[in-house]
Amino acid sequence: MTRSFQTRIDAEQKIEPKDWMPEKYRQTLIRQISQHAHSEVIGEQPEGNWITRAPSLERKAILLAKVQDEAGHGLYLYAAAETLGITREELIDRLHTGASKYASIFNYPSLTWADVGAIGWLVDSAAIVNQVSLQNTSYGPYARAMVRICKEESFHQRQGYNIMMTLMQGNEQQRAMAQDALDRWWWPSLMMFGPHDGESAHSAQSMKWKIKRRSNDDLRQQYVDQAVQQALAIGLKVPDPALAWNEERGHYDFGDIDWEEFERVIKGNGPCNRQRLAHHVEAHAEGVWVREAMACYDKKRRSRRHDAA
């Protein structure tokens, strides 16, 4: 069975919910998809902070629509995870107990309006580089969710970049605000791709199962090449002294990530870890009475219909 499963994977056939799959494949997918879903939902917060403070009505509408999309993407991904035989409730519980992670980058604060630009531009760009490769992931529901998400996300990075561009065309104070945001978000965005290939705990098996389609370092390089060019085009300076175009490779060389910082934030010591999780726990707990009311009303109505019939 394991062999015919791998044969199917090697033949680029998708795995669908009712198919037999190795238990470890199922668990790996649940871990990865739910982490992805949690990231979308927790990711509502840093930008969501600015919905009530957006500097114009147009920006307010754009930001609302953008953050709403993140919630939608979380929903698509929870639904994909649910096809693997786990409930959304269980997934949220794992988030709340810390058993399941979300992207560490959302543990940084969004201090100024420029951060909304930097997040849309850098964080969404990095996410898209990863997600485009996942459109070919071997699990059908995950792949289809990715296709949908990629289609919707194309406006996210553009609106973020547009905010940065507008700032760079503004006065000195605005340009400084944009540069400061880039300085703070650049390295965390590189960390989004995870550890180097050699040190990534789950990579090899995930590549074999075609859950993951391209390596961390490969995706990171693509992102750097794109983002550096975009930064230069609007006059921003990338905060990496080692950054240089390598003619021979046809890529940018760049400095190494501060892995201690990476570990520190993953372990819960980022500026906002506690707040992000507390915000979600609180909203979920405050929703309990609403969800109970719905279930109770539905039950009453059914029994009334039953009586009437």
Partner: peptide
């Protein structure tokens, strides 16, 4: 009491003349 909502599958007709197509699910 359980506060778990039911799962529904969603189908969308994108244009007149086309079939409804499965697009995902929700609670």
């Amino acid at each position: 009491m359980s506060d778990e909502l039911k799962l529904y599958e969603v189908f969308v007709r994108s244009r007149r003349g086309l079939d409804h197509k499965h697009v995902g699910s929700l609670h």
